Amino acid sequence: MVYVYTILLQSGGPGWDVPKGRKDGRISKASETIQLPSPSFNVSQLQKSFSQRGLSLEDLVALSGGHTLGFSHCSSFRNRIHNFNATHDVDPSLNPSFASKLKSICPIRNQIKNAGTTLDASSTTFDNTYYKLILQGKAIFSSDQVLIDTPNTKNLVSKFATSQDAFYKAFVKSMVKMSSINGGQEIRKDCRVVNLIS
């Protein structure tokens, strides 16, 4: 028996079957999100984070494609556009005109509380634009841009940028694999409600 999930309704993404029986947690803690990969991670840090969860290099690059959707506040990429290091004010891996755009959205003394930008130009459509932007030096997070720093990850980025179908297939495979990562306490009778303890 399987449940059928479709990636973010109306986003044009693929659907996949997920086996029943995944254990969900009974509580949610903000402190547990520190285990998530940082937007400033390099490739080896990303690879270590994913491999600790039984996920491969291909899973890493495929699942990163989820960044084709969404929005980022300035705080998650400010380090790339202001005082990057002792030599460069801006991360040299950023496309210069794109960096200028980001600096105008997020000035050094930003006064706008929720300032930020979408993760790609088609941020409401689940597609392979994200990978094309990485190849152009237009990734928002450094953890995305570093995916072209090693031959293995760069080859996957190029493959997914060239073929949306290849990206969809790899993403679905990795999502099903990720859905088997366990750590919860109960199998829900109703997935929206914590089981009653009798």
Rank of each mutant, 00 (worst) to 15 (best):
T117P: 09
L147S: 08
K23V: 04
S31E: 15
K159L: 14
K20R: 14
A62N: 04
D149W: 04
A62T: 08
F50E: 01
K159Y: 04
I148V: 15
L57G: 04
I34S: 09
M178P: 02
K138V: 00
V194W: 00
L36K: 05
K29V: 04
P107S: 03
L133D: 06
G65E: 12
N155A: 15
K113M: 12
V18G: 07
D190N: 15
S31I: 14
Q185T: 11
S143R: 06
A30E: 13
N195V: 15
L46I: 04
N110A: 15
V172Q: 03
T68G: 15
T6C: 06
Q185F: 05
F167S: 01
D149L: 02
G15K: 13
L133Y: 07
L119K: 11
L60H: 06
S11M: 03
I181Q: 02
L63C: 12
S142D: 02
L60Y: 01
T87V: 10
S75L: 10
Q35C: 05
M175F: 02
N85W: 10
S179W: 12
A121Y: 06
L60P: 01
Q35R: 11
V193S: 08
N195W: 00
Y3A: 04
Q10V: 03
P107M: 07
L55Y: 13
S40T: 14
R192K: 15
V2R: 01
V90Y: 08
L147M: 15
V4P: 02
F126H: 07
F126T: 03
I140H: 07
L46C: 03
P14L: 11
L8W: 05
S93I: 10
I34G: 10
P37L: 10
T162I: 03
I197A: 08
K113F: 13
P151A: 08
T129C: 03
S143V: 12
F84Y: 15
K154M: 07
K173T: 13
K177V: 01
I140S: 01
L36D: 09
L55V: 09
S97E: 11
M175H: 07
F171W: 12
A62K: 00
T33R: 13
S179T: 06
I134R: 02
I34Y: 07
R80I: 03
Q10R: 15
Q111R: 12
G70Y: 02
L156D: 01
I134L: 11
T33E: 02
K154E: 09
